[in-house]
Amino acid sequence: MLRLPKFRLEEPTTVEGATALMAEHGEDAMVVAGGTDLWPNMKHGLFEPKVVVSLKRVEAMRGITVDEDGSLRIGATTTLAEMAQSAPVQASAPALAQAASLVAGPQLRTMGTAGGNVMLDTRCQWYNQTHFWRKSLGYCLKKDGTVCHVVAGGRKCVAAASNDTAPTLMSLGATLAFASADGIREVPVGELWKADGIWNKKAERSEILTEIRVPKQAAGHRGAYGKLRDRGSIDYPLFGCAVRMDLGEDGAVAGADLVCVALVARPLRIKRVEELLVGKTPGTEAFDSAVQEVADLAYAQAKPMDNIPGDAEYRRELVPVYVRRTLQAAARGEGPVHHV
């Protein structure tokens, strides 16, 4: 078997209990929610915490509620399957439901959580491998080594953010609530990231994400998620893009956003998207050509690297295709864009 390293499991039942344990054990502790990312990584020897604090028994962290103002509160240990199937999420944040429905395969969505997806470790073909494999290759910057196999001579890890829901949360302007022994702090999801593949979050490893808040979207909100992958299930994204498109009363675009993943260490917001789309009405030629311009923009800004498996050149070529298709799907109120 591919054995887990030895550790002690803690199963607190309250957020306070969890934060206290994290404070107590400091660097030696990691949290686990669904475990669908942490356990494979630990089996590969990528993390060796002495203590693992499971969030599974913290009842307060699970479930989806709709606030009076129409915003969504998604408990961090809500499973991806629950999120994908939730009627309020489908109604008010369709791109999020779509992205959640395309994460991994069915069992993993039943296990994997909303919070775990945000906090997912970055991925790289030279890193997500067994200890034997990495040792044979020579360790890299992200774990135990001094070189990067993606960027020759690179001093910074460029392992890819590969979490499908992250770009949708960014496009929706979600806020994250983190708990620690020092209390609760709120972070707009767009401000969570940094361009460092080793740890791509501006959060302490001991902080616990307790809740994801998705603000009420505009009345004419449309959203869609596009995901490129080889198989129709199980696979991580080779490229992912989340679209928010708010239509005004006149049917023209009033606001828009486009955020991509599986490129670099952080989810990448494509710049100048709103500018190009605002005022264009879906179904018109002007809209179509604006969409094409956005696709070209994405092509210029989004440059896949040889970090995750899959031909980087090809992934790049598909950026504009998926961006265009996802924008059009959002405009039609459809999605996700996925080959099956």
């Binding site: 395969g105 073909q125 491998q129 067994t130 494999w133 044979s136 290759l137 080889d230 198989r231 129709g232 299930s233 199980i234 696979d235 991580y236 498996p309 099956v340």
Partner: peptide, 20 residues
């Protein structure tokens, strides 16, 4: 290029699922 199997796992060596 290092002489290593490029992805010796059922995640990276992709065999089709029921929908593929």
């Amino acid at each position: 290029r290092f002489g290593l199997h490029s992805g010796p796992s059922l995640l990276d060596y992709r065999i089709p699922t029921a929908i593929d």
